[in-house]
């Protein structure tokens, strides 16, 4: 076990998979000569050459379209989006083609590709570069959507995504990507630990309990899982024992793990940074209501981002973005103000 940063875990995952499988290649804007906008592919061009580290013009449609064709022809492309917001010009390629080709061709073709890139709200990048768009991808049958919250999952789940025979969207948590090891360890001991085993690639669609508790279940993913862990610490000071469930992937969605937790705690808070209206937390809350109604002792609470284009102003951004105090307040609402 090594203790590393989230961003280094991503680099390791790409390296290990490119070393293991020659059909894996990287394609995107500034992935080669510029070393990657966030330097995830630093040194890759030198090591793997320009046939496997492909710099493209500024055309996401081209990147994804090339990826789909390569995947259909037997390669395993990893398409980097400089930010996931930029996947929107290629949304047609993703939703209409990548997601549906296997179905439309009756299984004669498969599309083993990865679309990865930084996602989520980040300091003052404003409305067009600071948003969480996972719901858009979750609304496409045929895709898998991976939302790693920890360095271990950043490495493991990205590797699983590369090995998967379907198009997988990997949404990387930019907000916490560059946090140092100490930051992770302060939230929870061992949180920055990443298995060294190059064949560690967890099954997609398995949620995980990161912290056990008895009074309320905090369900989240990506950055919000670390927010939930911090909220759990605050709740502990008030004598409330919170269980933290990290979903890890949104498609496939593992509801068994959160439901088992809720059967125990009888209370649920679902946390996401994206907009609440029609968001992933809405789906999760609905499933809780449908499948655990008689176990609930309080209405399911959602903690989400405000339904506004993300403001540039730091102060407004803070107001629009969920933090651990909001999670604490929601948890206390389920306990009727305890």
């Amino acid at each position: 076990m090594a203790k590393i940063r989230y961003t280094d875990a991503l680099t390791l995952a790409l390296q290990e998979e490119m070393d293991r499988d020659e059909s894996v290649f990287i394609i995107g804007e500034e992935v080669g000569q510029y070393l990657g906008t966030l330097q995830v592919t630093k040194g890759f061009l030198e090591k793997y050459g320009k046939n496997r580290v492909v710099d493209t013009p500024i055309s996401e449609v081209g990147i994804i379209g090339t990826g789909i064709g390569a995947a259909m022809a037997g390669l395993r492309p990893v398409c980097e989006m400089m930010r996931m917001d930029f996947a929107l010009p290629a949304y047609d390629q993703i939703a209409q083609h990548a997601a549906k080709i296997r179905y439309m061709f009756g299984g004669q073709f498969k599309v083993p590709m990865v679309i990865r890139g930084p996602s989520g709200v980040v300091n003052q990048l404003s409305a067009q570069h600071s948003q969480a768009l996972e719901a858009l991808f979750c609304h496409c049958p045929g895709l898998k959507v991976v939302v790693p919250a920890t360095p271990a999952d950043a490495k493991g789940l990205l590797k699983s995504a590369i090995r998967d025979d379907n198009p997988v969207v990997v949404l990387e948590a930019l907000k916490i990507q560059f946090q140092k090891v100490d930051w992770w360890e302060e939230i929870q001991e061992g949180l920055s630990e990443v298995p060294d085993d190059p064949d560690f690639y967890p099954e997609l669609g398995k949620a995980k309990v990161l912290r056990e508790g008895t009074d309320v279940t905090l369900v989240g993913y990506s950055t919000m899982t670390t927010t939930n862990l911090r909220a759990a610490k605050l709740l502990e000071k008030d004598g409330i024992s919170a269980e933290v469930v990290d979903l890890r992937t949104l498609l496939p969605l593992d509801m068994a793990t959160p439901l088992a937790s809720i059967k125990k705690t009888h209370r649920a808070v679902v946390v996401q940074e994206q907009w609440g209206l029609y968001g992933c937390a809405a789906e999760i809350s609905a499933q809780i209501a449908e499948r655990a109604f008689y176990d609930l002792d309080a209405p399911v609470q959602r903690v989400t981002g405000a339904f506004v284009p993300m403001p540039y102003s730091r102060a407004l951004e803070t107001l629009a973005y969920p933090n651990e105090n909001d999670v604490v307040a929601a948890a206390k609402r389920t306990l009727y103000g305890k």
């Binding site: 609440g276 959602r302 981002g305 405000a306 339904f307 969920p322 909001d326």
Partner: peptide, 14 residues
């Protein structure tokens, strides 16, 4: 109202 307040419409000031 917490940030999770705004559903269905923009806040009044917007």
């Amino acid at each position: 109202k917490p940030f999770d307040s705004f559903v269905g419409a923009l806040p009044e000031n917007l």
